[in-house]
Amino acid sequence: MTTDDDDAPSLWQRINAYHDELFMAPWRAGIARQARNEEEILVALLFLEALGIPGPADYYALELYPDLVEAFHRWHQRMGMDTFPEAGVCC
């Protein structure tokens, strides 16, 4: 049986969390932006077919699609399209 006290983070865990935040806070935005740029390139390459351009790697990348549909949805919204016009892609 666990109590609330058992679930509470230990002093060591709290120090670690505090320290990690000190490490992350200054660069959080910059790194998230860089990660988003990388994701955008990947999404654009994998969804070439949906954009009307034949994608040479489409067959090999098929199993990635379910994982990247959400990313593709965010991407076309950032690009200014609230809903993607092609049926059956994401929205």
Binding site: L22, F23, W27, I31
Partner: peptide, 12 residues
């Protein structure tokens, strides 16, 4: 180089 690889940890 990516920010996370050198700039962030060195800044820290």
């Amino acid at each position: 180089l990516p920010v996370w690889l050198l700039l962030q940890p060195r800044d820290y």
